[in-house]
Amino acid sequence: MSVILVVDDDTEIRDVIHVYLRNEGHAVLEAGDGVAALEALVQHQVDLIILDVMMPRMDGIKACMRIREQYSIPIIMLSAKEGDMDKIMGLTTGADDYITKPFNPMELIARVKAQLRRQKMLVARDGAHGQIAIRELVVDAAKHFVSIRGQQVMLTPLEFSILNKLASSPGQVFSADAIYESVWKERAGYSDNTVMVHIRNLREKLEINPRKPEYIKTVWGVGYKMDN
């Protein structure tokens, strides 16, 4: 049984999501804004967060950024905005998935299952590998730990999985589709910038100058590689 935190200021939406999650066998916690969500995380161990964007006191974007300072819990963001820039903003702040309102509850449940499945697969797969050191970058898959220049770096589960894939094969170039299919465990067949956004997030966290990366390099027209 997984514990899922649903954060939305609309009680009707929380109630609907709660019922569907409970019917799938999950335990559900609820919060009405970002402040309450952060308080819930201190009191409970949570496996996944469903986080609305537009909320009082602390909105979902700020809450996501605060959560990512301490936790690597999968986050699915909900938003009434459909634009690409809104999606990119959500992913840039650390969300693992993004779904627009109004949504089909069964689609949301499918996204929840996918995130939980990926998290379990990530833990199982990473637990079988040791530590990777590339210059000042250290990736410890067993401990789900990353440090750069002696400082620990907090990554989301998807960011960690992408970094671990690249670091495990330094010098090898992976296309965006190959990264997506390996990490998301789904066929690519998409036209958004999901992989690019996560690579950008990794560079912001790892590189001294993200515009001139020393570690995660772009091979134009091909994909990405870890420079050793």
Rank of each mutant, 00 (worst) to 15 (best):
P213M: 02
R200Y: 12
D192W: 05
P213S: 02
D192Y: 08
K205V: 10
L206P: 05
K212Y: 04
N193L: 13
R203N: 02
Y190Q: 15
P210I: 02
E207G: 01
K205G: 12
K212D: 03
Y215I: 05
L202E: 01
Y215N: 01
Y190S: 14
I208C: 02
P210S: 07
L202S: 03
I208R: 08
R200Q: 08
M196P: 01
P213H: 03
D192S: 11
A188Q: 02
Y215M: 03
R200T: 05
L202Q: 09
I208P: 03
M196V: 13
L206N: 06
I199K: 05
H198D: 02
R203V: 02
E204D: 14
R211E: 14
T194P: 04
P210G: 07
L202R: 04
Y190T: 14
I208A: 11
H198E: 09
N201V: 02
N193G: 08
Y190W: 13
H198C: 07
A188K: 09
R203W: 03
Y215P: 00
N193F: 14
D192K: 12
R200D: 09
Y215C: 00
R211D: 13
R211M: 14
N201S: 15
V197L: 02
R200G: 09
P210T: 06
N209C: 12
N193I: 03
K205N: 13
D192I: 05
R211I: 07
E214I: 01
L206K: 01
D192A: 09
G189C: 10
E214K: 04
D192T: 10
P213Q: 07
A188N: 11
R203A: 05
D192F: 08
I199F: 10
R203M: 04
S191Q: 10
